[in-house]
């Protein structure tokens, strides 16, 4: 890239800084909005601690991690291969996805929790079925059903979806790094012998990058494991809180955040902090 060393001039720097501040403001407003709506007004937080059967919970966990590793890791790896091996460097799709990936992989897990509470739960219909806080006696049964994946599975799907969102950007990043670590002379030597793209990919790039890809996927999964407290949050909140549908103002904030993130992903492509590109 020829813009390797170009730094933004004062004007552009001011623009970038104001965008950063604006984003921060939007995020804090979002957080405040959600907190006010859920925890500060009419909250009934469950303080009932119950011992549930370990076997269905364990099965639920295994099923859960199988689902996210299958969906998230597979999606992440294919996406990274597509970005790195097929799209040219100046492609706008690549620019957009890479920007979003950088943003998403830096998002703290709390915000994913907020996403669940404000978007997934109200619109998934989970409340209609569970009818808010269940009678004390039913909580155990409900947990059994969700964990063993037999009864109402909406909460399970919500959790899987959230964790896929959490895992995918990290897997994409790790896989991209792994693909970039394959030495260029290796690729060139193979091409120079008349190998086509597919042969170079299957005989050289995949075997050479596989250890790093697997390590990256494991790291992403363990990262998901580390924030699985969030899962408890989702799970409990499905029974304890009943946020309403999004207000117009809230939707506006969400849209603004989306637009800003897309805008900033193009900006970060234009003014990279450091080059991660080969040649």
């Amino acid at each position: 890239m020829n813009s390797l060393m170009s730094r933004p001039n004062p004007k552009q720097k001011f623009a970038l800084q104001s965008i950063a501040l604006l984003t921060l403001g939007v995020v804090s407003l979002l957080v405040w909005n959600v907190l006010k709506k859920t925890y500060l007004s009419d909250v009934q937080v469950s303080s009932v601690a119950r011992v549930s059967d370990p076997v269905p919970n364990l099965l639920g966990d295994i099923y859960f991690f199988l689902s996210i590793s299958f969906l998230g890791v597979l999606l992440g790896i294919t996406c990274a291969f597509y970005l790195e091996e097929w799209l040219p460097e100046t492609n706008w799709v690549r620019c957009l996805i890479e920007g979003q990936v950088s943003i998403l992989s830096g998002v703290p897990s709390l915000l994913y929790g907020l996403l669940v509470v404000t978007v997934f739960l109200p619109y998934s219909g989970a409340f209609q079925r569970t009818q808010g806080f269940p009678p004390a006696g039913d909580l155990n049964t409900a947990s059994l059903q969700v964990s063993s994946f037999q009864g109402d599975t909406t909460l399970f799907y919500i959790a899987v979806l959230t964790f896929v969102l959490l895992v995918v950007p990290r897997v994409i990043k790790a896989t991209q790094e792994a693909l970039r670590s394959v030495p260029i002379p290796m690729r060139e030597s193979a091409y120079a012998l008349g190998a086509n793209r597919w042969q170079v990919l299957t005989k050289h790039v995949v075997p050479l990058s596989l250890p790093r890809v697997i390590a990256g996927a494991c790291r992403a999964m363990s990262c998901a494991l580390a924030v699985s407290a969030l899962f408890i949050g989702i799970y409990i909140s499905g029974y304890t809180i009943q946020p309403g549908r999004m207000s117009g103002r809230f939707a506006l904030f969400l849209g603004a955040a989306l637009v800003l993130s897309i805008f900033s992903s193009f900006l970060s492509q234009r003014y990279p902090l450091a080059s991660t590109r080969h040649t």
Binding site: P183, P185, M186, E188, S189, A190, A192, L193, K203, H204, P207, L208
Partner: peptide, 11 residues
């Protein structure tokens, strides 16, 4: 065909 400056060995 081509031979490069640095020998690159395949797996």
């Amino acid at each position: 065909g081509m031979v490069f400056r640095r020998p690159t060995l395949f797996r």
